[in-house]
């Protein structure tokens, strides 16, 4: 179901059918986006459900001047950032701890290089992590990332460049320390 079909269905009064179509179209993409931000499956499930509940509550206010796709990514990213900031206020970064635990995580079967990558990403400040993930994993154009994060493209490019350099350097340090 395309974004246009979902919105037409919703506006015709078939709210639940439209919502089910929307969830079906976006659940996997949003899940992986959130999962890369928070790492743990259960936390991802909470954030994803909160995202879709917020979508359900505010879909009638969606004006259509932004793409449904960027609007959904914005809600999912904000939900992830809220989760991460809540973790920080509780003292410490649980994402870093989760990255350390990846080797024993049942729902992670990556190799050493991938563990180093997620451990390095976990060290980034939350918003920079969102920029890095959207660009590096999803290969989202800067123009779209700017709409998702409501930031200028110039600032995003600089942020991504710094994040990329930091991740590279942290990964290299970890690998060098290991061998």
């Amino acid at each position: 179901m395309t974004d246009q079909e979902i919105l037409q269905l919703y506006r015709s009064g078939e709210r639940e059918k439209a919502f089910r179509g929307l969830v079906s179209s976006y659940k996997e993409r949003l899940y992986w986006h959130i999962r890369r931000m928070v790492l743990d499956h259960d936390d991802t499930d909470d954030c994803l459900q909160n995202t879709f509940v917020k979508v359900w509550q505010s879909l009638d206010r969606f004006r259509g001047d932004a793409q449904l796709y960027t609007w959904l990514y914005r809600i999912a990213t904000n939900e992830s950032l809220t989760f991460l900031s809540r973790q920080q206020t509780r003292g410490g970064s649980l994402t870093l701890e989760a990255a350390d635990r990846l080797s024993t995580d049942t729902w992670f079967d990556g190799d050493q290089l991938q563990r180093s990558l997620y451990k390095a990403i976990a060290k980034l400040p939350p918003k920079q992590k969102a920029v890095f993930n959207l660009r590096y994993f999803e290969e989202m154009p800067y123009e779209k990332i700017a709409q998702v994060l409501e930031t200028s493209e110039g600032a995003l490019k600089a942020s991504y460049h710094h994040a990329y350099e930091k991740v590279k350097s942290w990964m290299k340090e970890e690998i060098d320390a290991r061998y």
Binding site: R36, D111, L113, L117, Y164, K168
Partner: peptide, 28 residues
């Protein structure tokens, strides 16, 4: 190369089996 190799290694995360199947119903 380190970053490129990590990306090309694929998706390292997994979900419980059937997780996505009933998501719409669970949400409703």
């Amino acid at each position: 190369d380190i970053l490129e190799r990590a990306r090309q290694a694929g998706q390292p995360f997994k979900t419980p089996e059937g997780y996505f199947d009933g998501l719409e119903d669970r949400l409703m």
